[in-house]
């Protein structure tokens, strides 16, 4: 396959940046999108050019490091992570636009790499359980009803890649935050901090400069882990419940 890539190039955070066009040849349909970019980078290095910077780590679709908005879609045309997107989803001769996540809270560091540490600070605000855990407790010691366990697991699948923010017309982090809130709030282990968790995490989310939710639903359409839009509804309910209870410390 021979492709034309239009890639966002930006030297650093202060640089304006612009789209640059590259031709890349010798791509096979079984390559992943990142392997295709590796091929491009090898070519750029041989030509003495600066390779395109992009985030990647596990390349197994489970770490949340890879990003990229491909032809206007976060993680590209398939509902998976960019590393699990294969070139068979494209055709020979295609022109592909590759851009970084766009959000005020995710500033571009270089080329396609953005700073997603805002997510870490949201989790630090309450996305954990304050308990000295020691060794893993006996699994049957705390009974969890099956529907609750399923609900928690569905939300625990969030890998924090930030596709929801990238796709949101308001640059909102509601789907991410709601996944992290619901995952713990539904479990007995998370119950003691149920109210403060949702209040603190929403406050941290707002403080990072993310937008608000207008229920456009774009986040849930691109989420590689299938976190549902109803997750946001659940978090809204948790937030209102905590606020009515006056749970602010």
């Amino acid at each position: 396959m021979k492709l034309t890539l239009r890639v966002w190039r930006q030297r650093n955070a202060a640089d304006d940046g612009a789209m640059s066009t590259y031709e890349v040849d010798g791509i096979t349909p079984d390559m992943s999108f990142l392997e295709m970019l590796d091929t491009l980078n090898e070519k750029l290095i041989l030509e003495g050019e600066d390779p395109v910077a992009f985030d990647h780590d596990c390349r197994e679709g489970i770490c949340g490091a890879c990003s990229l908005v491909i032809d206007g879609d976060a993680h590209g045309p398939e509902r998976t992570t960019t590393c699990q997107l294969h070139m068979r989803s494209f055709r020979d001769g295609d022109v592909i636009d590759v851009e970084p996540w766009r959000a005020a809270a995710f500033p571009v560091i270089k080329d396609l790499v953005v700073d997603r540490s805002a997510f870490d600070r949201i989790v630090q605000a309450g996305g954990y359980i304050t308990a000295p855990t020691g060794t893993a407790p006996e699994a049957h010691a705390t009974p969890v009803p099956k529907p609750d366990a399923d609900h928690a697991f569905e939300h625990a699948e969030c890998i924090g890649c930030g596709a929801c923010v990238a796709a949101c017309p308001n640059g909102a982090a509601m789907l991410f935050t709601s996944a992290k809130v619901n995952h713990l709030n539904v479990l007995p282990q998370g119950a003691p901090e149920r109210e403060t968790r949702v209040l603190d995490m929403v406050e941290a989310m707002d403080a990072e400069g993310f937008g608000g939710c207008t229920l456009a639903g774009e986040c849930a359409t691109v989420c590689p882990k299938g976190i549902p839009l109803s997750s946001i509804t659940d978090m809204n309910r948790e937030w209102l419940r905590a606020t009515v209870k006056g749970a602010r410390r």
Binding site: R6, W8, M19, V69, D71, G72, D97, E99, R102, A103, A104, A105, C168, P169, N170, G171, A172, G209, F210, G211
Partner: peptide, 8 residues
């Protein structure tokens, strides 16, 4: 919260 638009 979304200052830069996508080209595509």
């Amino acid at each position: 919260a979304r200052p830069a638009k996508y080209v595509h």
